[in-house]
Design a protein around this nucleic acid. Structure first.
Lengths: 209, 209
DNA sequence: AAAATGAGAATGAACGTTCACTCCAGTAAT
DNA sequence: ATTACTGGAGTGAACGTTCATTCTCATTTT
């Protein structure tokens, strides 16, 4: 019974191996970028020969795609935490904290790497656009629910507001990964303030900085 | 007299040729990205043999650097226009219009390409960081002057505010170049609104949209 | 004639990927 | 208990391609 696995159903060991390889690849990619990290590097990091690695991933691009999807899973998990927040702005702050402050430089750099790569490889671009569309939709959902609860003003186009949030997230990710002097903890409060004044009801505000 | 040129002083014809080559390179880079555009492509676009092209630029990296510096010159020129604006917020709006709306997709894409590349090539990174430091300083100057004129509140840290503006610029550039559905003209007004509420004096505001 | 300008084939390195092969745990037959 | 077999796991040298760069030679300009 135990060995009655189908070709399409990988064993646990295989899944683990794939994860190990992705870990190694992530380290290499974060260190050197997608282009400058060679398959040999990744093989070295994963302590594995190229031939064997190719049994688990059919191409370098597949590695990149694998990492993208992992990142998405991570992002989705972050959204789950929002529901525990007491209101929209607290949820957003938590999301920002988790996505922009708590992450290591390597993780943020990897994120930048993915963004860059999606400008180059059409397949990655498609995958990444799907992921971003998903995230944007979740943001829009968040906004919609907040609007339903009366926490934010209703005269703002939610799609545009979600776009604004994406702009802010990408912008901060990007600057953090590119500018060594960028201090996320100093800038984030200003940004959150701005979002608050964009979305909060003008009359009933209980927290003005 | 005409041929009494020093090694360090190129003739007009040489300067023109360099500009032509940069034009061609820009087209290739915008189309395919720095990595996927080969020197052969650029030679084809410039209607020139590799050997000849290398007489004008010593390496591919030098081409990229040349394009970076061109972009900076462009950015600096944009700042000159700000001084014609009647106040800070109008100047900022003009800057944004010029930098984020008026530019073609190719130009914005090229900008994204430069951003990506500076994560990879240390020399480009250094060049780009210098350029960005310059731009940030100009933004800080703008803010300082506006503060001196009493157009914006004085209790905001100007360096952080300049960082915020950089975040917004990068974020919008980036999303525009990565997300085909991104509508700059729809998002920009919201962004400008946010900046206004961050920086404008709380009491004396003449335009709450 | 000398120098600058230009062409394009040649070079050599780097890289992703493949292939022929080894190793070894598990199993069944002898 | 020993042997023979099986198939997945793993190896690493080799391949073919791509690409930046250089070398050699021709053409034009001064």
């Amino acid at each position: 019974m135990a060995q009655a696995q189908l070709k399409t159903q990988p064993t646990q060991k295989q899944t683990d191996r794939r994860a190990e390889i992705l870990d190694a690849a992530e380290r290499c990619f974060a260190r050197a970028g997608f282009h400058r990290a060679s398959m040999q590097d990744i093989c070295g990091e994963a302590q594995m020969s190229p031939g064997n690695l190719y049994r688990y991933f059919p191409s370098k691009e597949a590695l990149i795609a694998g990492i993208c999807e992992r990142n998405r899973a991570d992002a989705v998990a972050s959204f789950a935490l929002v529901d525990e927040a007491k209101d929209f702005f607290e949820g957003l702050a938590g999301l920002a904290q988790r996505h922009l402050v708590d992450r290591s430089d390597a993780e943020v750099g990897l994120c930048a790497e993915i963004m860059s790569e999606s400008r180059r490889h059409p397949d990655i671009a498609k995958l990444n656009q799907a992921i971003e569309a998903d995230i944007k939709e979740r943001l829009a959902d968040m906004l919609q629910r907040a609007a339903d609860r009366g926490e934010i003003r209703k005269d703002v186009d939610l799609q545009s507001a979600a776009s604004v949030l994406m702009v802010l997230g990408d912008g901060m990710s990007w600057r953090r990964s590119v500018d060594p002097a960028f201090d996320t903890t100093k800038v984030l409060p200003l940004i959150l303030n701005m979002v608050h004044s964009l979305l909060a009801k003008p009359n009933a505000d209980g927290e003005t900085s």
